[in-house]
């Protein structure tokens, strides 16, 4: 056999092994839903699902890095609200050109997201605060700041360019979904192909071994939170553009839980060391389809959490089985 083709086969099998389960589950779920409900299978509905999951999906991509490095980030939902609120306030403060205002908002949202992530990273890496505690603290802080600057209500803009960008559809696919896909490709490469990605997995697998291998474990952990914060900032920008407003009370609420669930459903190990960005994308799509189809079936919104919770538990149980 040609060495090239064995290489290709090997790559395909590794890819399937690491991400195959969640994608297979996604395909089955899609088929079942498409067959059982004609409204579900309309193109418009499918596009809507991808748009709905894209905001928490972006956050889930960043969360994959934090979990791969053996950490957890509970603050990303609040960080989305905070950077969203401040970026719209910033946008409204820019006189004249609407395009310039959007550019300012974009810089603010991404920079604030990165800064929030950096704060988390510094607490964990330098302050040696356990990730759960550190990000629980910043979860409360970011939300409180969002409420303070947003006067506990909706922060809106009248910027038409922002609305257009937020609602833009390119080739039938909404802009946030494009960004989700592009970032999935890029971040998957970062995790699998770069030194940073390798070091993140090493630190998550066994931090002591990583330290003995002269890896700068603190810096590596810092980067994971920086990435997570940045994805929250990007998400905030797109999220605000959808309705040209951000609610300081409800924006990003419990997104961190959806993101964590997506990472886990996507086959990454909660203990760190093993992670797949493509798996996370499948995870977020599964979550989106489940809540959408429950809507279609007329199941009460209050009960949907129960089903979602069960999906998470069953997904993880199935993965444990296949791992053994």
């Amino acid at each position: 056999m040609q060495p090239e083709s064995t290489n290709g086969i090997r790559r395909l099998t590794t890819l399937l092994k690491s991400t195959g389960g969640p994608w297979a589950a996604l395909v089955v779920l899609l088929l079942v839903c498409c067959i059982s409900n004609e409204h579900f299978r309309s193109v418009q509905n499918l596009v809507n699902i991808t748009r709905q999951v894209s905001y928490s999906g972006l956050i889930a991509l960043g969360m994959t890095f934090v979990i791969a490095g053996g950490g957890i980030d509970l603050s990303v939902g609040s960080l989305l609200a905070f950077s969203g609120v401040i970026s719209i306030l910033g946008m409204n403060a820019v006189p004249g050109s609407e395009t310039l205002a959007v550019a300012v908002a974009a810089v603010i949202a991404v920079a604030l997201g990165a800064a929030g992530g950096a704060a988390n990273g510094a607490l964990v890496a330098l302050g040696k605060v356990p990730p759960f505690i550190a990000t629980l603290g910043t979860l409360v802080i970011f939300r409180s700041l969002a409420l303070y600057f947003g006067n506990s209500g909706l922060v809106s803009s009248e910027n038409e360019v922002y609305r257009e960008i937020g609602g833009a559809v390119i080739g039938g696919i909404p802009l946030p979904v494009w960004i989700l896909l592009i970032l999935t490709v890029v971040l998957s490469l970062v995790l699998k192909r770069t030194r940073l990605g390798r070091h993140i997995c090493a630190v998550g697998s066994n931090e002591r071994v990583a330290r003995y291998a002269a890896i700068r474990t603190g810096l590596v952990k810092f980067y994971t939170y920086l990435i997570a914060g940045t994805t929250a900032g990007i998400s905030a920008l797109l999220f605000g553009g959808r309705l040209n407003s951000v609610s300081s009370t409800s924006a990003g609420l419990s997104y961190e839980l959806d993101a964590i669930a997506a990472v886990i459903i996507g086959g990454s190990s909660m203990n760190g060391g093993k992670a797949s960005v493509w798996g996370t994308l499948a995870g977020i799509l599964i979550l989106g389809i489940v809540s959408n189809v429950l809507d279609m079936w007329g199941i009460s919104v209050t009960l949907q959490g129960t089903v979602k919770g069960l999906v998470i538990i069953i997904a993880v149980m199935m993965q444990r089985k296949t791992l053994k």
Binding site: A202, N206, V209, R211
Partner: peptide, 9 residues
């Protein structure tokens, strides 16, 4: 196992 190698790698 504690600091030399990554057993899961």
């Amino acid at each position: 196992q504690g600091s030399g190698i990554l057993t899961e790698f």
